[in-house]
Design a binder for these strands. Sequence first.
RNA 1: GGUCCGUUCGUCUAAAGGUUAGGACUCAAGAUUUUCAUUCUUGCAAUAGGGGUUCGAUUCCCCUACGGACUACCA
Length: 514
Amino acid sequence: MSRRTRVRFAPSPTGPLHIGGVRTALYNYLYAKQRGGDFILRIEDTDSQRFVPGAEEYIIESLAWCGILPDEGVENGKLVETPTEKHSHAPYRQSQRKPLYRKYAEELVEKGFAYYAFDTSEELDALRKDCESRGESFTYNYSVREKLQTSLKFSAGETEERISTSNHWVIRFKMPLDRVVKMDDLIRGEIEVNTNTLDDKVLWKAVDELPTYHLANIVDDHLMEITDVIRGEEWLPSLPLHYMLYEAFGWNETRPAFAHLSLLLKPDGKGKLSKRDGDRLGFPVFPLEWKNSEGEISRGYREDGYYPEAFVNLLAFLGWNPGTEKEIFSLDELVEAFSMERVIKSGAKFNPDKAKWFNMEYLRMRDNATLAKEFGAILVSKGISRPDAYIEHVVGLIKERAHFVKDFWDLSDYLFVAPTAYDQAVKTKFWKEDTPQILKEVCQMLEGLETFSKESIEHSLSPYIKERGWQMGSVMNTLRLALVGESKGPGVADIMDLIGKEETLKRIIKLADI
RNA sequence: GGUCCGUUCGUCUAAAGGUUAGGACUCAAGAUUUUCAUUCUUGCAAUAGGGGUUCGAUUCCCCUACGGACUACCA
């Protein structure tokens, strides 16, 4: 039996996708593409209470930004709602697949794998509290199901009566007793769980006429012919339930293979990465900026200046590695190199420093013309305009000092506007009594230069200083102070050449006169 | 509490029974640079603990400790 590989990424629209989610999507994508299969996006919005407007669009846009494009489920940036040849399993939003699930839940009841339960949430809460007060924990399972308000206890007539007169009922899975479920995980190997430790999970809620995650997930994966389920580790505890559901439906033959990815952890301390950590430690936990209903803004990698290629690359390496020393991979290269066998079992702490390093590597790979275009947009926003060639020249001089294009301005502002303040530390270190006089003499020499270029300046400046017996360090650093305002930047000759003779002389004289 | 998963430098990780336990990020030092940065070189730094199995365990098994996830009419 060899089926075409079909994987799905199935987030719920309860907020912005966090980087752990993006990584799950990425691994799904890599796995599918490597096998020439399909990557499907499905929105699991069976919890009407937690629905967040805009979250679905955010998910789609985030994936698009990363270049992780679904083969199925999305068309023109929107979730597909009606079946087409390409998107034959539409709709891909579970709330729109509503009519489809109930019969599966009822099928399970008919076959004796599930039952109706009429306990109210208040009753269950009371039971839970009661157990807790005795230091025990309440489990809705074989030990209590016969005593509670269920169709297992009621006659067919009473059950029917209750179903039709109220919507305060659910369908629960009747977890069998004394079974050892043997499961297989592509990453973790064999796992065994005894069904006696499991509970009777709710599969269907009459209140909103919607299935819970477990039912919808299994039914949709089956209907959509999913061959491999790659998801977060938080789902591992429900894997036995899912196995039992496949069995109950008689779908064991086409049950997908499972792979549970370890979680992304906080960079410091313990626990899994959360939105708060980003705010606290100063790095984004979301691919794109997100504004919640209170107007609170969470930073995004895109807005922070990361290239999507760098973001994808760094995410891929959080929990996977190729086994070689190559670290920079394009998406296509990742597709080729990825293997589930090399996915790490343990959780990975996110390292913001390494994230920046990845972006720097990608920034360096870009040619100056491209970077100049990106920097140009920032310059325009500051009301500065220069010829493309000039900006390209600037970029060439400073790109090796930057992690992000947004760093460019701080690294090169003096190449666009004259310094207005001078670094006191440089002044006290290099400023001598005769410095103003020396600067003026240097000006005269520079003014006499026939051609004013990097080469001509280099050839004349330092011999000139040596001839006079001046201190090289003192003169060069005060010249730099005049040009830049502080102790940073490329060679003095580079700067002079770029800003031109007139501006060079103006800046030197200005400082000499102070 | 219960169930399940995990544990190699500070962090991400390599070594799929035999290595001086390797690389990357960070940090430090040196060289280069008239400055800053880059670059180069060097350094710091790890197999959680205890038992087995084996001629030999980072690697296989068990126990302990620690960490994590789950334990909802949430996903």
